[in-house]
Write a protein that binds this DNA or RNA. Structure first.
Length: 479
RNA sequence: GCGCCCUUCGUCUAGCGGUCUAGGACACGGCCCUUUCACGGCUGAAACACGGGUUCGAUUCCCGUAGGGCGCGCCA
């Protein structure tokens, strides 16, 4: 390892104008893995310079989302808006040394300029009309913006860790605005100064910023500052290849939490979107930390696939310990609409729930499904019987149930004894085991599917089981 | 329109000139296991966008074409 080089500092810099969406989460993950895997730091900066669109809720959503995903940051978050004075100072300095200039073009004027350019088939860019004009020509009463005096010849090159060497002709880049007419800094200026002041060594972000990288490089050059290493990672698309829409997965990470996905599974899924390590699909966090590298990140956009996320989540659930899962359920339950109703019974039956977890986790792909698996325990009589279960409870089935009841009343309430007894009953009835097991399941759980029927019986206990069976068999308890 | 980027099974990807009759995973079909549903095991179908080069030899390198994405704000 080349531990002699300066420590790595990355940063995740979302703008708080909405929830932390899935693409942002992956960007944060890559930043986190890259820095932490190399003993470096990941900083967090909230780009809240757009006052109208920034909100407290969005900021909290970012903090909560990152925390849930297990991605922690070093130090206090930096709020970009709070650094406006510093940004202004740098803009003025650039103005003083002639690397920037005041532009008095009005918004309408700029709009006309762009419209005309488009009509004539030229790129819609600022034409530099105030670049070399004398300030004395300034129209009265107009507050100017400050623009960067960008090079007009030569080229700007970014050696990107993911994209490789990318080149722009400087004539294709115009003079961007550094300071708005109201004196507030633009994003372009702010990022450069903040990344420099925060000593960021590696900028890892979505490739929608690739063009910005060139423009920012020009600002770095004007300032005489070294340019951090850059890595522009491909975006995540929806299943149709177009932009990720809400119904496709452009949801806040809290939505994934609500759908019952595990943070570790989420991380594993996201890291494999664009990055790979041979044929390996499952990675522990430790493996990720030591294996992840930018040179293994591809350049093509990936499509978001719920099915694969779900499959991965199922694997993580199966690998989890019964204890961890029970704990996860306990935290998850309150998020459900009827969570408050289920909670008291959950607490009461916690041990039994954990005891049947081995059978449940084989069947669940999400925490939601896991909750569905324990519902029969949490809900109280009279049990709601769903349509499929009702279809199983035919008159014949109810007749079998009756005989099952009298048989079960005499059985020792243990899985193997129950197993033997039920099989014996099936033999006596000259029917397949399923002909007995399914009616039992329907009466006991109200559903057509559940974990193993003997586990259900044991988890419910003798009294509750018999009571539920009597409810469906139409018999009353013998006093 | 201009600039930049991308293109291997439906999807995520392996492949970094010969090892490719192109590998894995998800999804899908079949079989097995089985008290239901799952899980698990086995198995099947499924891809190098197209056209030119370079080379003894291209999925791999170069150039076009087509298709897709991103950017082109006093938004970030």
């Amino acid at each position: 390892m080349t531990e002699t080089s300066a420590p790595i500092v990355t940063r995740f810099a979302p703008s708080p104008t909405g929830f932390l969406h899935i693409g942002g989460a992956r960007t944060a993950l890559f930043n986190w893995l890259y820095a932490r895997g190399r003993g470096g730091k990941m900083l967090l900066r909230i780009e809240d310079t757009d006052r109208a669109r920034s909100s407290k809720e969005a900021i909290d959503a970012i903090f909560d989302g990152l925390t849930w995903l297990g991605l922690d940051w070093d130090g206090e978050p930096v709020f970009q808006f709070a650094r406006a004075a510093r940004h202004r100072e740098i803009a003025e300095a650039l103005l003083a040394v002639g690397r920037a200039y005041r532009c008095y073009a009005s918004p309408q004027e700029l709009q006309e300029m762009r419209d005309l350019a488009r009509k004539e088939g030229r790129p819609p860019r600022y034409d530099g009309r105030w670049r070399d004009r004398d300030p004395s020509e300034a129209p009265p009463g107009v507050e100017p913006v400050i623009r960067l005096k960008a090079p007009t010849e030569g080229e700007t090159i970014i050696d990107d860790l993911v994209q490789g060497r990318v080149t722009w002709q400087n004539k294709d880049l115009d003079d961007l605005v550094l300071l708005r007419s109201d004196g507030t800094p633009t994003y372009m200026l702010g990022v450069v100064i903040d990344d420099h002041d925060m000593a960021v060594t590696h900028i890892i972000r979505g490739d929608d910023h690739l063009t910005n990288a060139a423009r920012q490089a020009q600002i770095y050059d004007a300032l005489g500052w070294p340019i951090p290493r850059m890595a522009h990672i491909p975006l995540i698309h929806g299943p149709d290849g177009a932009k990720l829409s809400k119904r496709h997965g452009a949801l806040g990470v809290e939505a994934y939490r609500a759908m019952g996905y595990l943070p570790a599974a989420m991380r594993n899924y996201l890291v494999r979107l664009g990055w790979s390590h041979g044929d390996q699909e499952i990675f522990t966090t430790e493996e990720l930390l030591s294996l992840f590298d930018l040179n293994r990140v591809g350049r093509a956009a990936a499509r978001f696939d719920f099915a694969k996320l779900e499959s991965l989540n199922g694997q993580y659930i199966r690998q989890s310990s019964d204890q961890d899962l029970t704990g996860a359920l306990e935290k998850f339950l309150p998020e459900l609409p009827d969570g408050a109703t289920l909670m008291p019974r959950f607490q009461l039956l916690r041990d039994r729930i954990q005891a049947i977890m081995p059978g449940l986790k084989e069947r669940a792909k999400t925490l939601i499904e896991l909750v569905d698996g324990i519902r029969f325990l949490l809900e109280e009589r009279p049990l709601k019987i769903d349509d499929k279960a009702r279809a199983i409870l035919t008159p014949e089935a109810r007749a079998i149930l009756k005989r099952a009841i009298s048989m079960l009343e005499k059985v020792e309430w243990k899985a193997d004894a129950l197993d033997a007894a039920v099989r014996a009953l099936a033999d006596d009835e000259k029917v397949k085991l399923a002909a007995v097991a399914q009616p039992l399941r329907a009466a006991l759980t109200g559903k057509s599917t559940s974990t193993g029927i003997f586990d259900v019986l044991v988890a419910l206990g003798k009294d509750e089981s018999l009571a539920r069976l009597r409810d469906q068999a139409g018999v009353t308890a013998a006093a």
